[in-house]
Design a protein around this nucleic acid. Sequence first.
DNA 1: GAAAAATGTTGACGGTGACAACATCCGCTG
DNA 2: CAGCGGATGTTGTCACCGTCAACATTTTTC
Lengths: 211, 211
Amino acid sequence: MPAGDTPSKRSYHHGDLRAALLDAAIEVIGERGLHGLSLRECARRADVSHAAPYRHFADKNALLLAIARRGFERLAAAGVAAMDGVGDPRDRLDAYGVAYVRFAVDNPVLFRVMFTAELDAAEGVEAGHVVDKGGEEGDEAGAFELLVESAAALIDDGDDPREAALAAWSLPHGLAMLVLDGRIPPAEAATPAQVERLMRTIFAAWRGPLS
Amino acid sequence: MPAGDTPSKRSYHHGDLRAALLDAAIEVIGERGLHGLSLRECARRADVSHAAPYRHFADKNALLLAIARRGFERLAAAGVAAMDGVGDPRDRLDAYGVAYVRFAVDNPVLFRVMFTAELDAAEGVEAGHVVDKGGEEGDEAGAFELLVESAAALIDDGDDPREAALAAWSLPHGLAMLVLDGRIPPAEAATPAQVERLMRTIFAAWRGPLS
DNA sequence: GAAAAATGTTGACGGTGACAACATCCGCTG
DNA sequence: CAGCGGATGTTGTCACCGTCAACATTTTTC
């Protein structure tokens, strides 16, 4: 029973290892990339033995899934917040798109894990938002539903608003991916402000569709 | 010399191990996903010892990069072919987008490796096409240049055609990603024909921008 | 206060990427 | 045709990783 422990050390138990592991994982991915992530390294950074993570995550994949879940929650919140108070449906789609790309640029690791991991095929994530199977509330409607509603106001009756929403989703998603992959010349997307301007230009050019 | 060799065993040397490894790798990724790829498994499938791949690829990353290179070549070819003979600039953009998504759906492994791998940061790939440093011909202009040209004919003088081309690139790219990730409800994108119809609907809705 | 559940540790196993040293084969020069 | 050198494939090895089982410690519950 080690007595004189440093301010942080909680002797045997960690306190909130689960959260610490998630943070460590995000940090590691940011430094070494997704394939450079290892549970052991996360354990090391959390000052814990190499097998400790298995008390909180069944699997390496489970850890990534938890990260993705966190990301989807934040993305949905950002989308909802961006559309909040915006009345015109087209402006709502614009606002959503801008928030979407902004989120991706501000949280590259989360966004990558959300959409790059192969945990996709594995259940737990669906249609852009996390599925809470047997979850507590399940009140997370997903920002996609709001997209559909906004798109519905823009198209002819009889057309499928979900397809319009997909169009409204695909553009920011593609742009975000290209920016994150560095596929857009740095000259075009060096600073965040530049990215936002580019985004707005593109969305403006794209305005007028969906009808 | 070649001689009448039995279909398989070529005594000591393989014949064309490099290509065999690429094929094996694509196969493995298709079966087990990107993170399930291992050089040793590729070597096994090529009937070769576990270190043989290192005579052809400096690195696991080098293998992936070679796959990405192959993909970009084919994608560019498909894009060029799709636009060939199409006169109207807007129709050219449409044709490119359709070919783009079609390529992604038809070659999910290639597309994934092209845009998901972290080899992006490492040089060798740039702005959607492979950079042939000191390569032989380097005549690969990249389909992106054709996009820029087509977009240039659609926008006001003074606007940057590259930004318009980015808009024209982002939409199919995002759609392709979402389809590949299974993020689009299967009901919307179950069969290839369905995907193509969806694509055309989206592009039609999107028509009229860029001016 | 003891049993039970939760959490953390140690040790082990097979698989993997990467390298070094060695073996074999091919093509070329003389 | 001899043989030599480079290309290609092999064996052996090392550290690291994911995962599990067995064990230790702490907290919670009755």
